[in-house]
Design a protein around this nucleic acid. Structure first.
Ligand code: FES
Ligand code: FES
Lengths: 132, 132
DNA sequence: TCTTTTATAGTATTATGGTACCATAATACC
DNA sequence: GGTATTATGGTACCATAATACTATAAAAGA
């Protein structure tokens, strides 16, 4: 694996995917965390952000939990939410300024980047309904 | 940019690329750092690792510095050196275990990953000689 | 009303990568 | 030999992400 996502994004996508298999049922953070083998505390924090962003819904109290209403968000949205956007950068190396006239990774890389973006945009939670 | 490399890898590739344009000339860490706009201390540490790994050569004292001898390493090698290998993982999400039977990112992702690997393997320092 | 279960919120701790600091060793030049 | 310049190495500091802890608010049910 060359491309590695952050722990937070991993938790978000795995957790959301699990919810997607549950068809709107309310699931506690505790159960989600156990199911996807994540740190419970961290998962709660991540899901709070998802709730605020409207990606997932929540209800407190007994038999409460997190659930997907009509939300059918794509993976790219989740990615940007947790990893930030950084539209400014046009190379995985370096920050805003590059010492070279032409990027040493070249256009081949830009194409891969674009492919990945399209892939993440095409994947949606609704694709995962019949999963196990 | 969805794919972002670590600061260390960025420094390594940018620095090596700069050296590659210098055709074997010895360049001090100080100059390299200034040229690629990196923290000097960090660059020294990174280049120490590269020297130990045989990717770059070095000489101490006045008019010493780092230089490329016959080394014509590919980018994938540098990547693995600094970021580690992690052959075990087969998904950018999660660690060794995934709660799902089939990866939620699917084969499309694996293909992108493979493309990136091939790209990094194909890029070599010698490609950069006539650069600016 | 009381108790339990859940999310929410704020803060504290830990781990890690990046950076800085300092002493030492090698080499060149005078 | 002395001095300046460079890499080397160890360690210490800092910022950030990940994780833990503690308290609170909401909802359900008895
Ligand atoms: S922008 Fe510097 S290498 Fe791509
Ligand atoms: S292995 Fe878990 S989502 Fe790919």
């Amino acid at each position: 694996m060359l491309i590695r996502f952050s722990e937070g994004l991993s938790i978000a996508l795995h957790g959301l995917a699990y919810l997607a298999t549950k068809n709107g049922e309310k699931i506690s953070g505790k159960e989600i965390a156990k199911k996807i083998d994540a740190a419970e505390n961290t998962l709660q924090k991540i899901f709070q952000r998802l709730v605020k962003a409207g990606v997932v819904s929540s209800q407190r109290g007994p038999s409460g939990g997190f659930y997907l209403e009509d939300s059918d968000v794509d993976f790219l949205t989740v990615y940007k939410l947790l990893e930030g956007d950084d539209k400014k950068l046009n190379c995985p190396l370096g920050k805003t300024s590059c010492p070279f006239e032409h990027c040493i990774l070249g256009n081949d890389f830009k194409n891969i980047e674009k492919k990945l973006e399209e892939l993440l945009k095409s994947k949606r939670l609704s694709d995962l309904k019949g999963r196990s």
